[in-house]
Design a protein around this nucleic acid. Sequence first.
RNA 1: GGUGGGUUACUCAAGUGGCCAACGAGGGCGGACUGUAAAUCCGCUGACUACGUCUUCGAAGGUUCGAAUCCUUCACCCACCA
Length: 400
Amino acid sequence: MIKQALEEIARGTAEIIDMERIKKLVTQYYTDGTTYTVKAGFDPTAPDLHLGHTVLLQKLATFQKFGAQVQFLIGDFTAMIGDPTGKSVTRKVLSKEEIVQNISSYTKQAFKILDESKTTIVYNNDWLEKLGAAGILQLASNLTVARMLERDDFSKRYTSNTPIAVSEFLYPLLQGYDSVHLRSDIEIGGTDQKFNLLMGRQLQKVYGIHKQQSVLMMPILEGTDGVQKMSKSLGNYIGVTEAPKEIYGKILSISDTLMWRYYELLSDKSLEETVKLKGDVASGTLHPKKAKEALALEITTRFYNEELATLAKEEFDAVFKAKKLPTQMDEYEMPEGIWIAQALVDANLEPSTSQARRDIRQNAVSIDQKKISDEKLNLSAGEYVLQVGKKRFAKVKVGS
RNA sequence: GGUGGGUUACUCAAGUGGCCAACGAGGGCGGACUGUAAAUCCGCUGACUACGUCUUCGAAGGUUCGAAUCCUUCACCCACCA
Protein backbone atom coordinates (compact mmCIF):
# COMPACT_ATOMS: atom_id res chain seq x y z
CA MET A 1 0.00 0.00 0.00
CA ILE A 2 2.68 2.43 1.01
CA LYS A 3 4.84 1.34 -1.86
CA GLN A 4 2.01 1.96 -4.29
CA ALA A 5 1.38 5.39 -2.81
CA LEU A 6 5.01 6.33 -3.19
CA GLU A 7 5.03 5.13 -6.78
CA GLU A 8 2.05 7.28 -7.60
CA ILE A 9 3.62 10.24 -5.89
CA ALA A 10 6.83 9.83 -7.85
CA ARG A 11 5.07 9.39 -11.17
CA GLY A 12 5.97 11.93 -13.78
CA THR A 13 8.08 13.99 -11.42
CA ALA A 14 11.18 15.72 -12.69
CA GLU A 15 13.07 15.65 -9.44
CA ILE A 16 12.46 14.92 -5.78
CA ILE A 17 14.65 16.27 -3.03
CA ASP A 18 14.56 14.33 0.22
CA MET A 19 12.37 11.42 -0.80
CA GLU A 20 13.18 9.79 2.54
CA ARG A 21 11.19 12.42 4.36
CA ILE A 22 8.18 11.89 2.11
CA LYS A 23 8.43 8.18 2.72
CA LYS A 24 8.37 8.76 6.46
CA LEU A 25 5.39 11.09 6.26
CA VAL A 26 3.37 8.67 4.17
CA THR A 27 4.37 5.74 6.36
CA GLN A 28 3.31 7.61 9.45
CA TYR A 29 -0.03 8.40 7.89
CA TYR A 30 -0.64 4.73 7.27
CA THR A 31 0.54 3.86 10.77
CA ASP A 32 -1.42 6.24 12.95
CA GLY A 33 -3.28 8.55 10.61
CA THR A 34 -1.10 11.62 11.18
CA THR A 35 -1.51 14.02 8.30
CA TYR A 36 1.15 16.29 6.85
CA THR A 37 1.15 19.46 4.80
CA VAL A 38 1.96 19.99 1.16
CA LYS A 39 2.38 23.54 0.02
CA ALA A 40 1.98 24.84 -3.49
CA GLY A 41 2.04 28.49 -4.42
CA PHE A 42 -0.14 30.06 -7.05
CA ASP A 43 0.27 33.38 -8.64
CA PRO A 44 -3.11 35.06 -8.98
CA THR A 45 -2.16 36.66 -12.28
CA ALA A 46 -3.95 34.24 -14.59
CA PRO A 47 -7.61 33.80 -13.75
CA ASP A 48 -7.94 31.07 -16.34
CA LEU A 49 -6.32 27.80 -15.48
CA HIS A 50 -4.94 25.69 -18.28
CA LEU A 51 -3.69 22.13 -18.44
CA GLY A 52 -0.21 23.27 -17.48
CA HIS A 53 -1.53 24.29 -14.07
CA THR A 54 -3.42 21.04 -13.68
CA VAL A 55 -0.22 18.98 -13.74
CA LEU A 56 0.56 20.44 -10.37
CA LEU A 57 -3.00 20.29 -9.14
CA GLN A 58 -3.25 16.62 -9.99
CA LYS A 59 -0.10 15.91 -8.06
CA LEU A 60 -1.61 17.71 -5.10
CA ALA A 61 -4.74 15.62 -5.48
CA THR A 62 -2.57 12.52 -5.42
CA PHE A 63 -1.02 13.65 -2.16
CA GLN A 64 -4.46 14.24 -0.73
CA LYS A 65 -5.30 10.62 -1.40
CA PHE A 66 -2.34 9.65 0.73
CA GLY A 67 -2.87 11.75 3.79
CA ALA A 68 -1.85 15.26 2.88
CA GLN A 69 -3.48 18.50 3.84
CA VAL A 70 -2.82 20.89 0.97
CA GLN A 71 -1.73 24.43 1.69
CA PHE A 72 -3.07 26.23 -1.34
CA LEU A 73 -1.07 29.39 -1.18
CA ILE A 74 -2.28 32.42 -3.04
CA GLY A 75 0.67 34.67 -3.69
CA ASP A 76 -1.27 37.87 -3.41
CA PHE A 77 1.62 39.69 -1.81
CA THR A 78 4.32 38.30 -4.06
CA ALA A 79 2.18 38.96 -7.11
CA MET A 80 2.76 42.60 -6.44
CA ILE A 81 6.40 41.96 -7.22
CA GLY A 82 5.94 39.50 -10.03
CA ASP A 83 7.77 36.20 -10.15
CA PRO A 84 10.82 36.66 -12.33
CA THR A 85 11.02 32.96 -13.14
CA GLY A 86 11.44 32.35 -16.84
CA LYS A 87 10.69 35.91 -17.71
CA SER A 88 13.01 37.78 -19.97
CA VAL A 89 11.55 41.08 -18.90
CA THR A 90 10.36 42.49 -15.64
CA ARG A 91 6.75 41.69 -15.12
CA LYS A 92 4.19 44.38 -14.66
CA VAL A 93 2.89 44.90 -11.19
CA LEU A 94 -0.73 44.01 -10.54
CA SER A 95 -3.11 46.21 -8.65
CA LYS A 96 -4.81 44.94 -5.54
CA GLU A 97 -8.21 45.00 -7.17
CA GLU A 98 -7.05 42.89 -10.07
CA ILE A 99 -5.62 40.32 -7.68
CA VAL A 100 -8.77 40.03 -5.60
CA GLN A 101 -10.80 39.56 -8.73
CA ASN A 102 -8.56 36.84 -10.03
CA ILE A 103 -8.51 34.76 -6.89
CA SER A 104 -12.13 33.69 -6.72
CA SER A 105 -12.31 32.32 -10.25
CA TYR A 106 -8.96 30.71 -9.68
CA THR A 107 -9.95 28.61 -6.69
CA LYS A 108 -13.27 27.70 -8.22
CA GLN A 109 -11.50 26.11 -11.14
CA ALA A 110 -8.91 24.44 -8.95
CA PHE A 111 -11.55 22.52 -7.00
CA LYS A 112 -12.49 20.65 -10.13
CA ILE A 113 -9.40 18.65 -9.33
CA LEU A 114 -8.59 19.18 -5.67
CA ASP A 115 -10.46 17.77 -2.69
CA GLU A 116 -11.85 20.87 -1.04
CA SER A 117 -12.12 19.26 2.39
CA LYS A 118 -8.39 18.60 2.45
CA THR A 119 -7.36 21.99 1.22
CA THR A 120 -6.52 25.11 3.19
CA ILE A 121 -6.39 28.30 1.23
CA VAL A 122 -3.85 30.74 2.58
CA TYR A 123 -2.81 34.18 1.43
CA ASN A 124 0.78 35.22 1.89
CA ASN A 125 -0.21 38.83 2.22
CA ASP A 126 -1.48 37.88 5.70
CA TRP A 127 1.99 37.41 7.10
CA LEU A 128 4.26 39.09 4.60
CA GLU A 129 2.58 42.43 5.08
CA LYS A 130 3.36 42.23 8.78
CA LEU A 131 6.97 41.44 8.11
CA GLY A 132 7.74 45.09 7.64
CA ALA A 133 10.91 46.72 6.42
CA ALA A 134 12.95 45.38 9.32
CA GLY A 135 11.77 41.86 8.73
CA ILE A 136 12.53 42.07 5.07
CA LEU A 137 16.00 43.38 5.73
CA GLN A 138 16.63 40.55 8.12
CA LEU A 139 15.34 38.09 5.58
CA ALA A 140 17.47 39.58 2.83
CA SER A 141 20.59 39.37 4.95
CA ASN A 142 20.44 35.60 4.57
CA LEU A 143 21.49 35.73 1.01
CA THR A 144 24.34 37.15 -1.01
CA VAL A 145 24.10 38.75 -4.43
CA ALA A 146 26.51 36.17 -5.81
CA ARG A 147 24.18 33.42 -4.64
CA MET A 148 21.28 35.15 -6.30
CA LEU A 149 23.14 35.43 -9.53
CA GLU A 150 23.76 31.70 -9.45
CA ARG A 151 20.21 31.39 -10.43
CA ASP A 152 20.10 30.62 -14.09
CA ASP A 153 17.59 33.12 -15.36
CA PHE A 154 19.06 35.94 -13.35
CA SER A 155 22.55 35.28 -14.65
CA LYS A 156 21.25 34.97 -18.21
CA ARG A 157 19.46 38.24 -17.96
CA TYR A 158 22.43 39.84 -16.32
CA THR A 159 24.88 38.78 -19.03
CA SER A 160 22.49 39.64 -21.84
CA ASN A 161 21.93 43.13 -20.46
CA THR A 162 18.29 42.52 -19.69
CA PRO A 163 17.14 44.50 -16.69
CA ILE A 164 16.60 42.90 -13.31
CA ALA A 165 14.65 44.86 -10.74
CA VAL A 166 16.02 44.67 -7.23
CA SER A 167 12.55 43.75 -6.02
CA GLU A 168 12.77 40.60 -8.09
CA PHE A 169 15.60 39.41 -5.89
CA LEU A 170 13.13 39.43 -3.02
CA TYR A 171 10.74 37.07 -4.69
CA PRO A 172 12.55 33.82 -3.91
CA LEU A 173 13.17 35.02 -0.37
CA LEU A 174 9.54 35.78 0.27
CA GLN A 175 8.41 32.53 -1.26
CA GLY A 176 10.88 30.74 0.97
CA TYR A 177 9.62 32.61 3.97
CA ASP A 178 6.13 31.35 3.21
CA SER A 179 7.42 27.86 3.92
CA VAL A 180 8.87 29.06 7.21
CA HIS A 181 5.60 30.59 8.27
CA LEU A 182 3.50 27.63 7.19
CA ARG A 183 6.00 25.03 8.44
CA SER A 184 5.36 23.06 5.30
CA ASP A 185 6.45 19.44 5.16
CA ILE A 186 6.57 19.26 1.42
CA GLU A 187 6.45 21.87 -1.30
CA ILE A 188 5.75 21.15 -4.90
CA GLY A 189 6.26 23.28 -7.97
CA GLY A 190 7.55 23.27 -11.53
CA THR A 191 11.19 22.61 -12.34
CA ASP A 192 11.56 26.27 -13.13
CA GLN A 193 10.79 26.90 -9.48
CA LYS A 194 13.76 24.91 -8.20
CA PHE A 195 15.66 27.88 -6.91
CA ASN A 196 12.65 29.26 -5.09
CA LEU A 197 11.73 25.87 -3.66
CA LEU A 198 15.19 25.27 -2.33
CA MET A 199 15.13 28.70 -0.77
CA GLY A 200 12.31 27.42 1.39
CA ARG A 201 14.52 24.66 2.72
CA GLN A 202 17.38 27.01 3.36
CA LEU A 203 15.27 29.56 5.18
CA GLN A 204 13.50 26.95 7.26
CA LYS A 205 16.93 25.93 8.50
CA VAL A 206 17.96 29.50 9.22
CA TYR A 207 14.73 30.11 11.12
CA GLY A 208 15.24 27.03 13.24
CA ILE A 209 12.70 24.62 11.84
CA HIS A 210 14.29 21.24 12.32
CA LYS A 211 12.55 19.33 9.60
CA GLN A 212 13.15 21.03 6.31
CA GLN A 213 10.55 20.62 3.64
CA SER A 214 10.92 18.03 0.94
CA VAL A 215 10.73 19.39 -2.54
CA LEU A 216 8.98 17.76 -5.44
CA MET A 217 9.27 19.21 -8.89
CA MET A 218 7.02 18.57 -11.84
CA PRO A 219 8.19 19.03 -15.41
CA ILE A 220 6.83 21.98 -17.31
CA LEU A 221 4.07 21.00 -19.67
CA GLU A 222 4.67 22.02 -23.24
CA GLY A 223 1.90 23.87 -25.00
CA THR A 224 0.07 22.65 -28.07
CA ASP A 225 2.99 23.72 -30.22
CA GLY A 226 5.11 21.12 -28.44
CA VAL A 227 8.03 23.45 -27.90
CA GLN A 228 7.32 26.28 -25.54
CA LYS A 229 5.79 25.93 -22.15
CA MET A 230 2.05 26.16 -22.04
CA SER A 231 1.03 29.70 -21.31
CA LYS A 232 -1.83 31.94 -22.07
CA SER A 233 0.30 34.71 -23.46
CA LEU A 234 1.86 32.39 -26.00
CA GLY A 235 -1.58 31.23 -27.10
CA ASN A 236 -0.59 27.57 -26.99
CA TYR A 237 -2.74 26.63 -24.05
CA ILE A 238 -5.78 24.47 -23.39
CA GLY A 239 -7.95 26.14 -20.78
CA VAL A 240 -9.97 24.10 -18.31
CA THR A 241 -13.00 26.32 -18.79
CA GLU A 242 -12.99 26.02 -22.55
CA ALA A 243 -15.90 24.32 -24.27
CA PRO A 244 -15.71 20.52 -24.52
CA LYS A 245 -15.22 20.58 -28.27
CA GLU A 246 -12.37 23.05 -27.89
CA ILE A 247 -10.57 20.91 -25.36
CA TYR A 248 -11.16 17.80 -27.40
CA GLY A 249 -10.10 19.44 -30.64
CA LYS A 250 -6.98 21.02 -29.21
CA ILE A 251 -5.76 17.78 -27.74
CA LEU A 252 -6.30 16.03 -31.02
CA SER A 253 -4.23 18.67 -32.77
CA ILE A 254 -1.09 18.03 -30.74
CA SER A 255 1.72 16.04 -32.28
CA ASP A 256 2.11 12.32 -31.66
CA THR A 257 5.31 12.86 -29.73
CA LEU A 258 3.69 15.38 -27.49
CA MET A 259 0.80 13.03 -26.90
CA TRP A 260 2.97 10.72 -24.79
CA ARG A 261 4.11 13.61 -22.74
CA TYR A 262 0.49 14.53 -22.06
CA TYR A 263 -0.25 10.93 -21.21
CA GLU A 264 2.50 10.93 -18.63
CA LEU A 265 1.60 14.21 -17.01
CA LEU A 266 -2.14 14.49 -17.43
CA SER A 267 -3.69 11.06 -17.75
CA ASP A 268 -5.05 9.08 -14.85
CA LYS A 269 -4.24 5.86 -16.59
CA SER A 270 -1.79 3.69 -14.71
CA LEU A 271 1.81 3.52 -15.77
CA GLU A 272 1.40 -0.03 -17.10
CA GLU A 273 -1.57 0.93 -19.24
CA THR A 274 0.34 3.81 -20.75
CA VAL A 275 3.33 1.63 -21.52
CA LYS A 276 1.11 -0.95 -23.18
CA LEU A 277 -0.60 1.74 -25.25
CA LYS A 278 2.73 3.06 -26.39
CA GLY A 279 3.87 -0.43 -27.33
CA ASP A 280 0.73 -1.08 -29.35
CA VAL A 281 1.19 2.11 -31.30
CA ALA A 282 4.86 1.38 -31.92
CA SER A 283 4.08 -2.11 -33.19
CA GLY A 284 1.33 -0.81 -35.43
CA THR A 285 -1.47 -2.65 -33.61
CA LEU A 286 -3.05 0.62 -32.66
CA HIS A 287 -3.37 3.73 -34.81
CA PRO A 288 -1.79 6.71 -33.02
CA LYS A 289 -4.93 8.67 -33.63
CA LYS A 290 -6.94 6.18 -31.57
CA ALA A 291 -4.61 6.68 -28.65
CA LYS A 292 -4.97 10.41 -29.02
CA GLU A 293 -8.74 10.21 -29.14
CA ALA A 294 -8.75 8.24 -25.92
CA LEU A 295 -6.62 10.88 -24.24
CA ALA A 296 -8.77 13.70 -25.53
CA LEU A 297 -11.88 11.96 -24.26
CA GLU A 298 -10.36 11.32 -20.86
CA ILE A 299 -9.34 14.90 -20.32
CA THR A 300 -12.55 16.39 -21.66
CA THR A 301 -14.46 14.09 -19.33
CA ARG A 302 -12.44 15.29 -16.37
CA PHE A 303 -13.62 18.86 -16.78
CA TYR A 304 -17.15 18.06 -17.88
CA ASN A 305 -18.64 14.59 -18.00
CA GLU A 306 -18.62 11.56 -20.20
CA GLU A 307 -21.75 12.50 -22.06
CA LEU A 308 -20.54 15.94 -23.06
CA ALA A 309 -17.14 14.57 -23.97
CA THR A 310 -18.68 11.97 -26.27
CA LEU A 311 -20.79 14.66 -27.87
CA ALA A 312 -17.68 16.71 -28.46
CA LYS A 313 -16.05 13.77 -30.16
CA GLU A 314 -19.05 13.15 -32.39
CA GLU A 315 -19.24 16.78 -33.35
CA PHE A 316 -15.56 16.81 -34.11
CA ASP A 317 -15.75 13.74 -36.32
CA ALA A 318 -18.74 15.16 -38.18
CA VAL A 319 -17.06 18.46 -38.92
CA PHE A 320 -13.58 17.32 -39.74
CA LYS A 321 -13.96 13.80 -41.04
CA ALA A 322 -17.29 14.04 -42.81
CA LYS A 323 -16.78 17.73 -43.57
CA LYS A 324 -20.17 18.58 -42.22
CA LEU A 325 -21.07 21.87 -40.64
CA PRO A 326 -20.82 22.30 -36.90
CA THR A 327 -24.14 22.18 -35.05
CA GLN A 328 -23.43 25.42 -33.24
CA MET A 329 -22.36 28.55 -35.04
CA ASP A 330 -22.45 32.22 -34.22
CA GLU A 331 -25.19 33.98 -36.12
CA TYR A 332 -25.16 37.47 -37.52
CA GLU A 333 -27.55 39.70 -39.38
CA MET A 334 -26.36 41.92 -42.17
CA PRO A 335 -27.79 44.40 -44.64
CA GLU A 336 -28.48 43.30 -48.16
CA GLY A 337 -25.73 43.74 -50.71
CA ILE A 338 -22.97 43.68 -48.12
CA TRP A 339 -19.50 43.23 -49.48
CA ILE A 340 -18.17 39.75 -48.74
CA ALA A 341 -14.96 41.01 -47.14
CA GLN A 342 -16.92 43.29 -44.85
CA ALA A 343 -19.29 40.47 -43.97
CA LEU A 344 -16.35 38.29 -42.91
CA VAL A 345 -15.08 41.07 -40.67
CA ASP A 346 -18.51 41.70 -39.17
CA ALA A 347 -18.92 38.00 -38.45
CA ASN A 348 -15.62 38.02 -36.56
CA LEU A 349 -14.06 35.61 -38.97
CA GLU A 350 -11.43 38.06 -40.13
CA PRO A 351 -9.63 40.95 -38.43
CA SER A 352 -9.71 43.28 -41.43
CA THR A 353 -11.04 43.48 -44.94
CA SER A 354 -7.44 43.38 -46.15
CA GLN A 355 -6.92 40.04 -44.49
CA ALA A 356 -10.29 38.86 -45.82
CA ARG A 357 -9.28 39.71 -49.37
CA ARG A 358 -5.98 37.94 -48.99
CA ASP A 359 -7.72 34.84 -47.73
CA ILE A 360 -10.21 34.89 -50.57
CA ARG A 361 -7.35 35.11 -53.01
CA GLN A 362 -5.77 32.14 -51.26
CA ASN A 363 -8.82 30.01 -51.68
CA ALA A 364 -9.58 29.89 -47.97
CA VAL A 365 -13.11 31.26 -47.96
CA SER A 366 -16.28 29.29 -48.62
CA ILE A 367 -19.93 30.19 -48.78
CA ASP A 368 -22.19 27.23 -48.06
CA GLN A 369 -19.13 25.00 -48.38
CA LYS A 370 -18.26 26.20 -51.86
CA LYS A 371 -14.96 27.98 -52.29
CA ILE A 372 -15.21 31.47 -53.67
CA SER A 373 -12.65 33.44 -55.63
CA ASP A 374 -14.38 36.75 -56.32
CA GLU A 375 -13.19 39.19 -53.70
CA LYS A 376 -15.60 41.86 -54.94
CA LEU A 377 -18.66 39.73 -54.38
CA ASN A 378 -21.71 41.31 -52.75
CA LEU A 379 -24.17 39.15 -50.87
CA SER A 380 -27.78 39.19 -51.91
CA ALA A 381 -30.57 38.47 -49.45
CA GLY A 382 -30.67 35.01 -47.91
CA GLU A 383 -28.96 32.83 -45.32
CA TYR A 384 -25.42 31.67 -45.78
CA VAL A 385 -22.76 29.79 -43.91
CA LEU A 386 -19.44 31.53 -44.20
CA GLN A 387 -16.26 29.63 -43.57
CA VAL A 388 -12.62 30.64 -43.40
CA GLY A 389 -10.01 27.92 -43.34
CA LYS A 390 -10.97 24.68 -41.68
CA LYS A 391 -12.04 25.91 -38.32
CA ARG A 392 -13.84 29.22 -38.52
CA PHE A 393 -17.56 29.19 -39.25
CA ALA A 394 -20.43 31.64 -38.97
CA LYS A 395 -24.01 31.80 -40.07
CA VAL A 396 -25.19 35.06 -41.58
CA LYS A 397 -28.61 36.31 -42.43
CA VAL A 398 -28.51 38.90 -45.16
CA GLY A 399 -31.39 41.29 -45.74
CA SER A 400 -34.47 41.87 -43.65
C1' G B 1 26.94 62.40 -11.32
C1' G B 2 30.36 61.19 -15.87
C1' U B 3 31.27 58.42 -20.52
C1' G B 4 29.66 55.28 -24.28
C1' G B 5 25.80 52.22 -26.59
C1' G B 6 20.70 51.48 -27.58
C1' U B 7 14.85 52.03 -28.60
C1' U B 8 12.41 49.41 -36.11
C1' A B 9 5.98 45.47 -37.21
C1' C B 10 3.76 39.62 -32.83
C1' U B 11 9.26 38.38 -31.44
C1' C B 12 14.38 38.60 -32.89
C1' A B 13 16.78 41.55 -36.31
C1' A B 14 18.60 44.40 -41.24
C1' G B 15 18.22 49.18 -43.03
C1' U B 16 22.42 55.50 -41.75
C1' G B 17 18.51 60.89 -47.25
C1' G B 18 14.75 58.90 -52.55
C1' C B 19 15.02 51.94 -55.35
C1' C B 20 11.07 51.66 -47.85
C1' A B 21 4.82 49.56 -46.06
C1' A B 22 10.50 48.73 -44.70
C1' C B 23 15.74 42.64 -46.14
C1' G B 24 15.97 38.13 -43.33
C1' A B 25 14.60 34.50 -39.49
C1' G B 26 11.01 32.69 -36.08
C1' G B 27 5.91 32.76 -35.08
C1' G B 28 0.99 33.12 -37.04
C1' C B 29 -2.61 32.38 -41.00
C1' G B 30 -3.95 29.95 -45.59
C1' G B 31 -3.25 26.15 -49.60
C1' A B 32 -1.34 21.01 -51.11
C1' C B 33 -0.39 16.17 -48.77
C1' U B 34 -2.62 13.85 -44.20
C1' G B 35 -5.06 11.55 -39.06
C1' U B 36 -7.55 19.38 -38.23
C1' A B 37 -0.74 14.94 -36.18
C1' A B 38 4.38 15.49 -37.43
C1' A B 39 7.60 16.28 -41.54
C1' U B 40 7.69 18.54 -46.37
C1' C B 41 6.43 22.03 -50.40
C1' C B 42 3.95 26.71 -51.84
C1' G B 43 1.63 31.48 -50.72
C1' C B 44 0.28 35.48 -47.40
C1' U B 45 1.51 38.34 -43.05
C1' G B 46 -0.22 47.65 -41.61
C1' A B 47 -5.12 49.71 -43.00
C1' C B 48 -8.66 51.29 -46.62
C1' U B 49 -14.38 48.61 -51.88
C1' A B 50 -7.63 49.26 -53.22
C1' C B 51 -2.86 48.82 -59.67
C1' G B 52 -4.28 54.26 -55.90
C1' U B 53 -4.70 56.58 -50.94
C1' C B 54 -3.69 56.83 -45.73
C1' U B 55 -1.02 55.71 -41.10
C1' U B 56 3.58 53.38 -39.19
C1' C B 57 10.48 52.60 -37.51
C1' G B 58 10.46 55.38 -28.66
C1' A B 59 7.80 60.85 -28.28
C1' A B 60 7.50 65.90 -29.92
C1' G B 61 9.44 69.56 -33.00
C1' G B 62 12.82 71.01 -37.14
C1' U B 63 16.03 70.80 -41.88
C1' U B 64 14.77 69.05 -46.97
C1' C B 65 11.36 68.80 -53.19
C1' G B 66 11.78 64.13 -50.21
C1' A B 67 13.41 61.29 -43.56
C1' A B 68 13.27 54.93 -40.29
C1' U B 69 17.80 57.43 -41.93
C1' C B 70 20.27 64.37 -40.68
C1' C B 71 19.48 68.22 -36.39
C1' U B 72 17.15 69.70 -31.46
C1' U B 73 14.61 68.55 -27.04
C1' C B 74 12.33 64.84 -24.05
C1' A B 75 11.30 59.76 -22.22
C1' C B 76 12.89 54.92 -21.34
C1' C B 77 16.71 50.89 -21.35
C1' C B 78 21.88 48.84 -21.02
C1' A B 79 27.19 48.82 -19.89
C1' C B 80 31.53 50.88 -17.71
C1' C B 81 33.42 54.50 -14.27
C1' A B 82 32.12 57.24 -9.60
